[in-house]
Design a binder for these strands. Sequence first.
DNA 1: TATTGTTATACTCTATAACTATA
DNA 2: TATAGTTATAGAGTATAACAATA
Lengths: 152, 152
Amino acid sequence: MPVSSKPAPAVEEVDTSYLETLVGYNATRASLKVIELFSKRMAVYDLRHVDFSILSLITHNPGITSRQLCGALSILPPNLVGKIVTLEKRKLVHRKPHPQDGRAVGLYLTDAGEALMRDAEGTAVDLETEATQRLSAAEKKTLMRLLQKIYR
Amino acid sequence: MPVSSKPAPAVEEVDTSYLETLVGYNATRASLKVIELFSKRMAVYDLRHVDFSILSLITHNPGITSRQLCGALSILPPNLVGKIVTLEKRKLVHRKPHPQDGRAVGLYLTDAGEALMRDAEGTAVDLETEATQRLSAAEKKTLMRLLQKIYR
DNA sequence: TATTGTTATACTCTATAACTATA
DNA sequence: TATAGTTATAGAGTATAACAATA
């Protein structure tokens, strides 16, 4: 055996075991995987996942304000403005003055917006089923509960 | 009771129950929550979460190539270049020719990089404990397993 | 012909400061 | 004085095309 140092070995298979002990890593990878599928399936509606979340919250909270949307989705107000403007230009959303607060504006879906979201929410359910096909119903329920324990 | 339409009601509390039925939504919110804490705790090392993942993979896979890093972390090659250059300028990483493949370059931590990662990986474990403090050890283990079922 | 690493580039996302109008 | 919505802008993240060197 020579005393000289061995040549640097090549990495055959990447060892990710340390990263896989971290919730942050696992949650991020799972999130990206679902969003990737989401983007593909929602392309027909020309909706990004944040747009979908915005429209979905307006669907279930007609009259919601920009501030409330920002709070619920952790979006900063300046970054929401452009999205709302775009959705309004597409005639999916319209704005009405807030009944009590003159500073605020209530957001509503148009008929076209409602029709689109009926389709899109159905597609979302389908795609979620596909993304979680390796999980049983009980496992899926458990996963939701544990994730909510982290962010709530 | 007047026949005229009632004024638009204000939304008191935002109903997020539909979004909370979606794994994508839950995983993304949990991911963002952990990354937020991660960013705060890792600020002392001037490491973003992707930089940490890169250094961690080099730690546990000395000689790993850029391509392998890209594959393991779902980063596109052009977007990795700048990060490696920065880590090299900071003397945390150095590059050596790949022993078999003349096109490729093996990545290694410097002594300073190893010292930093010993501290940073400890900090990561602490911060993960904090982020998952509402989960039991068994729940945490279950969560990891279920998340991996989604992205693997 | 295919792959590694790279440059250039465009688009999106995220973040901060500052303004206006209303409360 | 505080808050809702907005503008401007800077920085970080993500995407595609194309090239040189090597396999």
